[in-house]
């Protein structure tokens, strides 16, 4: 290894190290395996050509995700839209209200039910793109708020608003699905909330 070299010694190793993550991210963006593989290959080639721009010591996974996302939107002609964001605090309180309503209906453990967990993929796919891509990075790819903000090129405050909104929309949808499946209704709210342990 030559620390004075501005290029890390092995581009290929660095890229291939993140290939599983990148492939998974591309699949969730493209939602088609062949398109996703093309997207991964394009991403790696673009990264290779701009390797000199990569700042050593910065996070290469985030950098690859950024390239992947930009490429996806360019190829598919989709504009990453800016939407007015509600305040994260309001979204957080709204999620609290969802729990407060679900809990006395016997839905307090609903996200541990296999049938409900199985519906997460569809609920995620139904989210508006703006919210979906934030949830994707943070809830499925374990990025921090900061890292997601860098990839999406938006402020951290916007990441929080969109993430919390995404989660509330997902919860609403999954709770509706659970009620449709009959969860909760068999145990009407006979006991008062105060009486619960």
């Amino acid at each position: 290894m030559n620390p004075t070299d501005s290029h890390p010694p092995d581009f290929e190793a660095e890229c291939l190290r993140w290939l599983p993550d990148l492939a998974r991210y591309a699949r969730s963006l493209a939602r088609d395996d062949d398109l996703a593989d093309d997207l991964v290959q394009d991403t790696v080639l673009i990264a290779f050509k701009s390797w000199h721009q990569f700042i050593r010591g910065s996070e290469s996974r985030g950098w690859l995700f950024t390239i992947c996302r930009n490429r996806f939107y360019r190829v598919h002609g989709r504009e990453a839209r800016q939407v007015a964001a509600d305040t994260p605090e309001l979204e957080t309180l709204a999620a609290t209200a969802l729990f407060a309503a679900a809990s006395p209906q016997g839905l307090g453990d609903v996200f541990e039910q296999e049938e409900v967990v199985g519906a997460v993929g569809d609920a995620m796919a139904a989210l508006p793109e703006t919210y979906r891509e934030v949830a994707l990075l943070i809830d499925m790819h374990d990025h921090t708020y900061e890292s997601a903000a860098r990839i999406l090129e938006i402020p951290v405050g916007t990441v929080r608003s969109r993430l919390f909104r995404a989660r509330r929309l997902l919860q609403e949808q999954l709770l509706t699905h659970a009620r449709d499946l009959g969860f909760g209704v068999a145990r009407p709210s006979a006991e008062s909330r105060e009486g619960r342990p």
Binding site: L16, L19, Q41, V44, V117, M140, L174
Partner: peptide, 27 residues
């Protein structure tokens, strides 16, 4: 539990060898 449910719905990644080979060849 909600967060765990989301995490468990990560896209499964199938066999990566063909993609890895393809990326290597393209590079």
């Amino acid at each position: 539990a909600f967060k765990a449910a989301l995490r468990s719905a990560r896209e499964p990644v199938a066999e990566l060898t063909p993609l890895r080979d393809r990326v290597r060849a393209a590079l």
